[in-house]
Amino acid sequence: MDVTGVDTTGAGETVLTDDGVRLWAARTGGDAGEPVILCHGGPGLWDTLEEPAALLPGNPAYRWDQRGPGRSQRSGPYSTDRPVADLEAVRRHFGLERVTLLGHSWGARPALAYAPAHPARVGGLNYVSGTGIDDDSTWHPAHKEAFHRRLGERPGRRERRQELRERGDGRTDAEDREYAVLQWSVDFTDHDRAEAHAEAMATPWFGVNYACDAAIGAELKRPSATHGLRERCAALRVPVLRVPVLIVDGEDDIRPRWSVDSLEKALPDVTRTTPAGAGHLPWTEDPEGFRAAVGAFPGGVRHRWGSR
């Protein structure tokens, strides 16, 4: 870690944002097809999308750590708008004229906001495991209930999480990682492999930026957080602004998938696919299905697992 807070040990490049913050970004993949920029989940986390990037069929893939966590500079401001501007900085840094976006979980939100803001730059949007455009209060109680139910399906996990939670800032770095692994394990449907999958997500471990998570989380709880998103999605009906969207929902994601229904209705050019037996990270539990659906989008035949 250098004096600016940027991790210099990871392979990649430094992207300078419009307000001088340094972001980590890396290019992988081949040279065939439209470049894809991937936006990871969080907030307060780092890029964990190396696996889905590798499933793209030869496309150049660009991954980056949002400001605050991971290998990027630990510097705000932290808000729902900043990742949109920072995504534009990544595009400009690599000199990409037109891109496909793949946003996962929280990262689906800035990707969705970027598309109507820069429609000429976006060839398509893969909206993976997002939570839609309605107020978070409409779906979060159902998510919380499902989280605790799945966490309690294996003995001792709920109790250990609560113990670590109560330690708060007193957790060691190792305990903080353990706490995250317990949290993330519920995002997988296979009980026998869930914690191994979550361990892979936590490797390498950069530490959660709780200040970033809290700042953006508080903003997302406000009723105004999604204000204008519905209108901006509807604006994509104008032919010159039209951006095709693929919505990917894991059938067993603990975030209720009906939360995305209003987004689907608001978009003019949308395909929705629901992989059976997959949770919040569908590429992990159905890699071939994910490759077929996302790799063929946009354009060409859009393969589906069992579309609605």
Rank of each mutant, 00 (worst) to 15 (best):
A292Q: 12
R22D: 02
S262W: 08
F206P: 06
L182Y: 01
L236N: 03
A235M: 02
P223M: 09
H191R: 14
V238A: 15
P298G: 00
S137F: 08
H227S: 13
L16Q: 14
G58S: 10
R242F: 06
C233N: 09
D136I: 15
K221G: 14
E34P: 13
G95H: 06
V301Y: 04
R165C: 02
H197K: 11
L101N: 07
M201N: 06
E264S: 12
S307V: 05
D47W: 07
R193L: 14
E166N: 07
G20C: 10
W139R: 15
S72D: 09
T4A: 14
E34L: 15
G250S: 08
A296R: 15
I216D: 15
D65S: 11
T14V: 15
D253R: 09
R302W: 02
D252A: 15
L246P: 11
G170I: 02
G299V: 08
V186E: 00
Q183D: 14
W139T: 10
D187S: 12
E13P: 00
V270R: 07
F206M: 10
R158W: 00
G123L: 09
R161N: 00
A54R: 15
A214S: 12
S185L: 00
F188G: 01
G107P: 03
R171Y: 00
R71S: 10
S137I: 13
R304P: 06
T17R: 03
W46F: 09
L38Q: 12
V208K: 14
S79H: 11
P119H: 07
A32Y: 09
D286V: 02
V6P: 06
T284C: 03
H197T: 05
Y127N: 05
T17V: 00
V99W: 01
K265C: 03
D65G: 12
C233Y: 03
D134S: 13
W24H: 15
R165L: 12
T80K: 05
W283I: 02
D249W: 08
E145A: 14
Y179P: 01
P256I: 11
A225G: 08
P244S: 08
V238Y: 05
D192T: 06
L16N: 10
T226D: 11
G289V: 06
T4I: 00
P256T: 11
W64V: 06
T8V: 13
D253E: 11
E153F: 01
G58H: 11
A196D: 14
T48F: 09
A214G: 08
S259P: 01
V270C: 13
R150M: 04
L220V: 12
S105G: 13
A235L: 04
V208E: 13
I37Q: 05
D18F: 06
G70N: 12
A234I: 09
L125M: 04
P116E: 10
G107H: 05
R242P: 08
S259E: 11
N209L: 09
T14D: 05
V90Q: 01
R22Q: 13
G277Y: 08
L246K: 05
